[in-house]
Every structure is written in C-alpha cells, then in structure tokens.
Design a binder for these strands. Structure first.
Lengths: 355, 355
DNA sequence: CTGAAAGCGCTAACAT
DNA sequence: ATGTTAGCGCTTTCAG
C-alpha cells in the first residue's frame, strides 16, 4: 500500500557509516555538544535526515544513566476523581506538560500522588533508580503533608504548580489569583452591587488567594461582609450548593451577588439559587474562577477569570528540563502568571428587570 | 530526616547475589517464565522484596527490543481542545489506561493524532523503532482517514475505542449506546412525552448509535418525528445551542422533550431553551448522554446514560498487553460494555406545573 | 531447571 | 575536533 523504503533498524551506527564519521560524533551532534566542526555537524545532520534516524529512548537513558522522563503527580484525592471533578484540570495539566515534553524529547509519565507518606518515598525511589528525571507537582498534590520537604531533602528536582507556600519549592509556577479575584469583585461593585458574598474556599493557594482578593476589594470599597457570607468549604460543586443554600435561606437578607472560589462552586451556587426560586442573573449575579469548560456551558454563561493551566504546566516542565540539563535552554526558576478576566452573562446590575 | 538505608543501586545483580543464584534466574522470575523451580522462585522473590528491587525500564526495553510502552492517541481535533471540550473525556481515557499500565509495568505515552496522513507514519515508525509497543486509539481518532487500515497493514498492534466500523480493528472496545439511547427515549415516552426531538449527532459511533437508538424507540412506540427535529450537527455545546434555537423558534410546534447526542449538546439545548423563555424541566424535558461531570453540575441536573470511558480504556489496554505478551494474561480481543441509565432532574411528565 | 556469554543502542571517559 | 574503549542493566541465545 505505502511504497516506503524504510529499513527496520536505523541506529546510530548506520548514521555514522552514512556520514563517514564515528558513532561518537553522531552522538555529539544529537546532544548538541559544542565541540563539533560546523561542516561535520551539518553532514551528520544531513544523514540523520536522509535515514530518518531517531535515537532509541531506552538506550539513551540506560547509557546516560538519566531518565528523560518527567513525572506528573496526579493530585489523587480519590474522592475528587471518583466524581469526575478535576478531570478537566488534569487534562489541561497534561496537555501543557505534553507539548513541552514532546518538543524537548521527554516522555511524560503519570504518577499517582496519594495522601500518604508512601508517595514521597515512591517518588524519590523512582528518581534514585533513574526511572524519572523530576516531577511536576500541581496543587493540590503540593499540599500532601511533608511531600515537598521530603523531595527537597532527597534532592529530587521538582517544580510546584500553585503551592500554598512558595518557600517550600525551589522551582514553582503560580498565578496572580489574588489580583484577578479583586478585579472580579471590583467589576461587581462597579455594576452597583454592595451586598456581595463569597462562596467556597479552602486551604490551598486557590482558596486562600481568591478569597483574599475578594476581601481586599471589598475592604478597599468600604463594603462590609457579614461573617456568615463566607463558607470556606471547598472548591467543588457541592461546596457551592451548600453555600448557596445557606446564603439564600432568608430571602430578605440575601446578597445580590456571589463571588465564587471556582467555576464549579459557581455552578453549585446557581443550582441552589434555582432551588430557592431565584433567577440568575436577574435576581443574583455570580462570578466564578478558572474559565473551565463548564463556565461556558452553564446558563447563564459565567463571568470568570482564566487560570492558564496549560501555560503554567508548560512553564513548570521548562523549569525542570533546564534543571536537568544545565547545558540546555535556561528558564527562570519561578514564575507568576496573570489571570485574564472573561466577561459573560452571569453578571448584571442589581435590580435589573427580566428582559 | 528519614533514616532509611536504601543503597543507591539495586540491580538484578545484587538480587542474584543475595539469593545465591545466577542473574538469569532472577530475570526468569521477573518475567514469570515457567521453567523455574518453585523454591528457587520463592527465594528470589524474597530477595527482591528484601532489597526492594525494581527493574530498570530502559534496560528491559533495550535488551528485550520491545517497548513496554502503550501509546494513547489523543484525538486531536485541535478546535475541540482549544475550547477545552473533550478534556474530561481525555482524562477519563487516561486514568483508565494508566491504572492498567501501572499494574502491568507499562508506561503510558501520549501521542498526538492529527487529521493528516502523517499520523499513521509517525505511529508506525514509533513501533518499528521499538519506542512503543502498541496503541489505544479512542474515537474520534479512530476516524482519521486511513489510519486504522495503515496500522493494520503495517501490523502495528492497536485497540480501537468506539470505532465507527469494528471490522477495521482486530481489537476493539465499544459500548452499547444504541440500547441505552433507546432506553432513555423510552423513559421519556413512559413519562407521557410524544413530541420528542433529537439534537446533535455526527459521523462517529456515538452520533450514529445514539441517534439510531432514539429512532428505534420512537418507531417501536409508533411516534413520528418530523425531519427538522433532527439536527445531526455534532456532539458539542454549540451543536445543542443551534439545534435548540431551531427547535424552539416556533413555540406552538415545539417538542416537549429533547434527546441529546451528548451531555454537552444537552447543555446547549438548555441554554437555548432559557434564551427562548422556556423553563427546564417544566416546559421542556431533556436527556443527555455520557454522564459527564457537566451533567451533574447543570441545573437541572441531567438524566443521562453513563459511558464508562475508564473501564473501556482499561479493557483496551488489557487487550493490547495480551497481544504484546502472548505468555501473559489473556484477554478477549473485543468487548462490548453496557451504559447504565442515570436518573436526575431534567425529566418530568409534559405539562407539569412548576412546584 | 539453571548458568555463561554476548549483546541491545547509546554515551561517559579517556585517548589522540 | 574526532575516535576508541568500556560499560549502563537487562534479556536473548545457547550450553550445561
């Protein structure tokens, strides 16, 4: 069917023969070693092209005693994944990591991070036994007790994504969620809202920063928020559902807008609002956070802030590769990215009449 | 900090020494070769335990000239992923594949499947150069033109998930979506609905089977469906939005229920309904398909059918591993799984008054 | 049933 | 700047 003449095995030897040089020279070219004559390099490159040579991963790792493998620690709070929450986050993490891995010749490996001490030992073992080069550890796996410290002590390279405490990691990537949350809150205030509640939260960076941004904006605007308008009970759908039910129990004293710790929480708040007979956005404005797929598909579509998960993970992998290959492309050890606001239909001024 | 005495390198040699046997014997035990004396095997196993030995992946692949790597072809219709649709599906695919890979000592590798001829060559190359053992190809990557045929011709092992044509694959896993869709439709009929439309669809197994199941149930019940109540325009949110807008344009002639080709489509139909001033489920019942996270978070939560993506992928990997290791655990080459119905709040009898 | 030798394809050290 | 010599840790022959 396909008239391609591709011999079964093109090893480094064939390339060397074709180019009329030693195997070692080809190896040098493959690894971008500096001390190779310009024309030799080009000749080799030509042969590589001509033969369609691709180095064998396993042979490289074995010989070099280093694994060109990046481990992505899957934040495996089993309960979360059982309910399919977090699946989208996970995919975004992976796609971001994958693109850089492919482009740099690394393999991406998924590793489960349980909430136990075993995790740290497992991860350390894999690096010590040279199966893995280093790890990307995304929140909430960053909060597995003692994990970051153990890895640091064992000198295992890793980059943390949105850790609660950046001082626990030499390399990290985080987003300016505080600022985005403030901006979102300010947007509500600009629309005329004064009675604004905050739903969800928790002891991860996302929870802390998003709530912090809300508090800051409200304080700056001189607006008071009663204590019971904070629920601080997680980042998932159910968190929003329960927060909403509490918030809307007394219809006279209810808020006219709710800032949510995540899009999932916002979905829960909206569901609760419906149950309590409130119309969204006419009776209640809602903003989320994450710019998840859900935020587009909900009705009304959510005004939210975009958490650039893919870009963040890509950065993290670049940091790791830079650490693993001192001779390669450098990358800043830490980076803070911005979250853009995404305006949609879940916000209107208070007291707007239905269209 | 951690007082663990774990020498840096535990190779097969150390194990052999510890057990007082030859390296070869340890290798035999690791690979479950039959011709090893019972007590020898146990002694070796004990040493493996004692030393915490773990074979080096790269060395095994190199020596055995076979890659213990399963490639998961990411259905990369770029447009889909750009909009984050399909992310959840992707994660489910991965988690299912990952668990089996880990348990069988394989590495899971993500491979991008573009809608081009290049894909097939790429995939074949990776297997021929022994970087990958075989592939799991989930829909819609199964429909990349010529892909399955090319792989078959090149004798590359693969298992297809929900291919449109099973005869294109020696190994496949699919779900009985036709039956589930019929059951969902019948459920609507049982509730008293007669004017039922079908939204979404398309030239993939999911689209064809789900619409087929709907048609069958309607025909069996003797219910007519006007041609314009089929949209056949995809499986995403926008498909539902546009289908809904068409369906609800004329309020007198509109359906009282809509069977959707996917949960995403259902979300679009619901959004359209809201825009057209219809209340869901009071004025319109809706059912989805997939049991995605979205289906729980929407209001009203969707009645839908569960597509067991994780189980399906796990099966596919088992099929592949069985093909790759004739001596290992056998697995049926094909399997058809069922989709359970999930009853939630998006269905009520027609003409129900709001509570 | 068990073992000894010979690589798998590549790269680190050392030459040159 | 290039080549030579040894392996990396494991498995495949092929002998006992």
């Amino acid at each position: 069917m396909t008239p391609r003449t591709k011999p079964e095995k093109i090893t480094i030897r064939e390339v060397a023969a074709h180019a009329g040089v030693a195997v070692m020279t080809v190896s040098r070219v493959m690894r971008n070693e500096p001390h190779v004559a310009q024309d030799t390099r080009e000749a080799v490159l030509k042969s590589i092209q001509a033969l369609g040579y691709r180095p064998l991963h396993s042979a490289r790792s074995l010989a070099a005693s280093v694994a060109r493998v990046i481990g992505l620690v899957v934040p495996h709070k089993t309960t979360d994944f059982a309910s399919k929450a977090g699946y989208e986050y996970l995919s975004a993490l992976q796609m971001g990591a994958l693109s850089v891995c492919l482009e740099r010749g690394y393999t991406l490996m998924m590793v489960k991070g349980h909430q136990t001490e075993t995790t740290a030992e497992e991860l350390i073992d894999l690096v010590k036994s040279r199966q893995v080069g280093g790890y990307v550890i995304p929140a909430p796996a960053t909060e597995i007790v003692g994990l970051l410290d153990a890895l640091t002590a064992a000198e295992v390279p890793f980059s943390a994504i949105s850790p609660l405490r950046m001082d626990k990691a030499q390399r990290w990537v985080a987003a300016n969620e505080h600022a985005a949350s403030s901006a979102l809150t300010q947007h509500l205030i600009d629309q005329g809202h004064q009675r604004i509640a905050f739903a969800g939260g928790g002891a991860v960076r996302a929870g802390v920063e998003r709530q912090g941004g809300f508090r800051a904006a409200m304080a700056t605007a001189g607006l008071k928020v009663p204590a019971r308008w904070y629920s601080d009970n997680g980042l998932v759908f159910e968190s929003g559902l329960s927060a909403g039910n509490t918030l809307f129990a007394d219809r006279r004293q209810r808020p006219t807008a709710v800032v949510c710790a995540s899009d999932d929480v916002a979905a829960g708040v909206i569901a609760a609002a419906h149950c309590c007979g409130l119309r969204v956005p006419v009776d209640l404005s809602v903003v989320g956070f994450d710019n998840s797929g859900l935020s587009r598909k909900l009705w009304p579509a959510l005004t939210t802030a975009n958490l650039p998960v893919e870009e963040m993970t890509a950065m993290a992998v670049k940091q790791l590769v830079a650490a693993l290959e001192p001779a390669g492309q450098p990358a800043p050890a830490t980076s803070l990215v911005d979250c853009d606001l995404v305006m949609r239909q879940s916000v209107v001024p208070p007291g707007t009449s239905p269209s």
